[in-house]
Simulated assay, not measured.
Amino acid sequence: MDTYRRVFVESWTAPLLSRPNPLRRSGFDMDLLVERIEREAQDVVSLTLRAPAGDRLPQWSPGSHLDLILPSGRQRQYSLCGDPGDRTGYRIAVRRIAAGGGGSIEVHERVRAGDHVRVRGPRNAFSLVDAPSYLFIAAGIGITPILPMVTAAGARGRLVYLGRTRASMPFLNELPADAEIRPDDEYGVPDVAALMARAEPGAAVYVCGPPPVLAAAQECMFTLNPTGSLHAERFSAAPVVGGRDFDLTLARTGKTLRVGADETALAAIRRELPDAVYSCQQGFCGTCKTRVLSGAVDHRDRLLPDSQRHDQMLTCVSRAVGDSLVLDL
Score class of each variant (00 low, 15 high):
Pro15Arg: 03
Pro15Cys: 06
Leu16Trp: 03
Arg19Ile: 05
Pro20His: 10
Pro20Thr: 03
Asn21Met: 09
Pro22Thr: 12
Leu23Met: 11
Leu23Ile: 13
Leu23Pro: 00
Arg24Val: 09
Arg25Val: 03
Arg25Asn: 09
Gly27Ile: 04
Phe28His: 14
Met30Lys: 02
Asp31Cys: 02
Leu33Gln: 10
Leu33Asn: 05
Leu33Arg: 15
Val34Asn: 01
Glu35His: 10
Glu35Leu: 03
Arg36Lys: 12
Ile37Cys: 07
Glu38Ser: 12
Glu40Asp: 15
Glu40Pro: 00
Gln42Gly: 02
Val44Cys: 15
Val45Gln: 07
Leu47Asp: 12
Leu47His: 03
Arg50Phe: 13
Ala51Trp: 09
Pro52Tyr: 09
Ala53Pro: 01
Asp55Asn: 04
Asp55His: 05
Arg56Trp: 06
Arg56Met: 14
Leu57Glu: 14
Leu57Arg: 00
Pro58Leu: 01
Gln59Asp: 08
Gln59Tyr: 02
Trp60Arg: 08
Ser61Phe: 13
Pro62Asp: 08
Pro62Ala: 08
Ser64Arg: 01
Ser64Cys: 04
His65Arg: 04
Leu68Thr: 10
Leu68Lys: 01
Leu68Trp: 14
Leu68Ile: 13
Leu70Phe: 07
Leu70Ile: 06
Leu70Val: 06
Leu70Asn: 11
Pro71Gly: 09
Pro71Tyr: 12
Gly73Lys: 04
Gly73Ile: 10
Gln77Phe: 07
Gln77Val: 10
Leu80Pro: 13
Leu80Gln: 04
Leu80Asn: 04
Leu80Glu: 11
Cys81Met: 11
Cys81Thr: 12
Asp83Ile: 00
Asp83Cys: 14
